[in-house]
Every structure is written in structure tokens, then in C-alpha cells.
């Protein structure tokens, strides 16, 4: 099968959906022909579809999302890009109070089919305002769907599903994933929301990981198998809302051990929710306490050694794995 990058997979999804449905349009800062998006995801699309449908906006995040809401509830399907995930804070009223609630508070009169694409994640030394992982904010907001693709295949299939859906989706990308290559079929496919993917099968311990942490977990699992003959299973939820709780519970029941690896803050984070689900539904199957490998509740610092210290890595994942495996 051909291999393409995560970035190209996203662009393919946008292009195909724009061709399929004339009401799909893109808006965001510098996404058009002069820049092609800060991470070049939308490069070439303005040339192909015109500036009406690939719309450069002023630097007005709240109005970008509000405009998307107004367009979504009146018969179009906007895909808004917020240049960095941290900047969703500027649009939080429109995301959390308007997009998320507009269907519910108006008694299902409206639907709000829109996508907010935004990159999260640290690792490129751009400090506290461009590096955080805030998926939990949106997971904590009823009315939103939250997608967290970790591979080019998932990115394309999930983005197409998000665009075709009838609800607002916060589509969380990760800036270190954009250049990563993976197999993506040429033929049409979509990936349903709420269906986790087993990125690696194993029997000894379950790792639930998201976004870039899936790749670090895969590296850690390989190393552990090689050095300790221990087989870790890696579950990638792919969407946090809806969350495939059954896949997580099933794996935990099989392995009896669970570690969760996410890049967001540990407290009240994605990992906390997944740990709670395992505790609620599979506590009798657990042979060891659940371990969370997550960001230690700090803003993201700038200097490379500081930044590396707070982001989970293969070493911290292996350490956690060994800890849960020692508790027989």
C-alpha cells in the first residue's frame, strides 16, 4: 500500500470532502494561498477550490468559531482551523457555550455540523502558548465530539467522518505527527467515531495511548518485548468523545494491567477519565494499580531539557510498565 504523511492524509480528506459536498468550506488564519496553513495542511486547496471556500480570516479566533457555528446551523459544513490548540482558549465561548449547546438548548431544532481542526502537543520548543494538550477541555464539554488521530490512516478516515457528521467535532492533531508517514489506501474509506483501534496486540499489559503518545508507546512496547519478553497491548481510542469504553475494558480484563499514556496534564485529564472507567468496570480484573503517564501539571516550558522532562517518553513509559508488571 502507498505511504503518505499525516499532513497529506488530512489534506486528502479535506479535498475529497470538498469535492463531494459543495457546502463544505474551510476558514482560518493563513490557510489560503499565501501560506497554506501554519503546518501546510491546507496548501494548494485555495488554488483548487477558490478563496471563497478556503477563506483566510482576520486574527479573530472567537469570531472564526462563531462564524462556523452560524454557518453550520444554516446549512453549510465549515471546517475551521485554529492555528495552535492553545488558541482555542480565545474561542472557548463559541466552542463550549455555543457550538456544544446550540442543539440541546434549542430542543434539537438545530444541528451544528462543523469541525475545528487544531494542533496540540509539545516537542518543538515553542513554549507555553503553542504546546499544550487540551483535549480534556473538550472531552469535558457535552455536545462536542473529540477526535485524536495518531496515524495518517486514522487522520484521513476520522476527518472525513467528522465532516460528514452532524455535530461539532474538535479534531485534535499533533504537530509532531504531521511529517509521519503511514499506509493510506487510495480508495475511499471512513472510520466510525467511538471505535478504538488496537495498535498492537499483547497479553501482559494494556497501554491506552493517544496521538503522538501512541508512537512512543509502540517504541516502548517493542523494547520491552525484546528485553523482557513482555507483550503489551496498545489501545488507541481514536476518539475521546464518543469513547470506546468497551475496547478498553475488554483489554484490561484480558491483561489485568493498565497504564495510560497521554500528553495532557494528569489532573482531571484524559488519563484520569480512562482510569476511572477501568476502575468502575474492571477493578476485579486488575492485578496491579493503574498507572498514568501524563504531563505533570505544568505549563509547557521552553528550554529543551525542561520541555523533554515534562513530556512522557519511552523511558517513563517503560518505567511505568515495569512498575505495574512487578506487582504480580
Amino acid at each position: 500500500m502507498r505511504k503518505i504523511t499525516y499532513r497529506d492524509a488530512l489534506r486528502e480528506a479535506l479535498r475529497e470532502e470538498m469535492k463531494r459536498d459543495p457546502t463544505v468550506f474551510l476558514l482560518g488564519e493563513d490557510i489560503g494561498k499565501y501560506w497554506g496553513g501554519a503546518f501546510k495542511v491546507t496548501e494548494g486547496l485555495a488554488e483548487e477550490f477558490g478563496e471563497e471556500r478556503v477563506r483566510d480570516t482576520p486574527i479573530s479566533e472567537n469570531a472564526i468559531i462563531g462564524t462556523a457555528v452560524g454557518a453550520a446551523i444554516t446549512g453549510t459544513c465549515p471546517v475551521a482551523e485554529i492555528m495552535f490548540g492553545d488558541l482555542t482558549a480565545l474561542a472557548m465561548d463559541q466552542i463550549a457555550n455555543q457550538a456544544a449547546k446550540i442543539r440541546y438548548m434549542f430542543g434539537a431544532q438545530a444541528k451544528c455540523p462543523m469541525v475545528i481542526r487544531t494542533p496540540f502537543g509539545a516537542g518543538v520548543n515553542i513554549a507555553s502558548h503553542h504546546s499544550q494538550s487540551l483535549e480534556a477541555w473538550f472531552m469535558h464539554t457535552p455536545g462536542l465530539h473529540v477526535a485524536v488521530p495518531s496515524t495518517p490512516y486514522d487522520a484521513k478516515g476520522l476527518l472525513k467522518t467528522a465532516i460528514r457528521g452532524n455535530n461539532p467535532t474538535v479534531f485534535c492533531e499533533h504537530k509532531l505527527l504531521y511529517p509521519i508517514e503511514g499506509e493510506v489506501p487510495e480508495q475511499e474509506y471512513t472510520i466510525p467515531f467511538g471505535k478504538a483501534d488496537t495498535k498492537r496486540e499483547g497479553e501482559d499489559v494494556t497501554i491506552v495511548a493517544t496521538l503522538y503518545m501512541v508512537h512512543k508507546a509502540l517504541n516502548a512496547a517493542k523494547q520491552l518485548e525484546k528485553e523482557n519478553a513482555i507483550n503489551a497491548e496498545i489501545i488507541d481510542p481514536r476518539t475521546l468523545t464518543p469513547l470506546d469504553t468497551q475496547a478498553i475494558i475488554k483489554s484490561v480484563k484480558k491483561t489485568g494491567r493498565l497504564i495510560i499514556v497521554t500528553e495532557d496534564c494528569k489532573t482531571a485529564g484524559v488519563s484520569a477519565e480512562i482510569a476511572a472507567i477501568a476502575a468502575e468496570h474492571a477493578v476485579d480484573y486488575l492485578d496491579a494499580p493503574i498507572k498514568r503517564v501524563a504531563e505533570p501539571d505544568t505549563p509547557i516550558p521552553f528550554s529543551p531539557p525542561l520541555e523533554q522532562y515534562v513530556i512522557p517518553n519511552e523511558k517513563t513509559i517503560i518505567k511505568a510498565l515495569k512498575e505495574v508488571l512487578q506487582t504480580w
Partner: peptide
């Protein structure tokens, strides 16, 4: 298109409907 109780929140939504 509905009443919003967040002061000022309706303005961008109006812009979106007009764009649509």
C-alpha cells in the same frame, strides 16, 4: 436562530449565517 445568553455571542453567529 435562537437567543444566546452570553452577551455578545450572537454577533459572530450572525456573521456565519450571512456567510452561509
Amino acid at each position: 436562530m435562537g437567543a444566546t445568553a452570553v452577551v455578545g455571542a450572537g454577533l459572530p453567529i450572525a456573521v456565519g449565517a450571512a456567510l452561509s
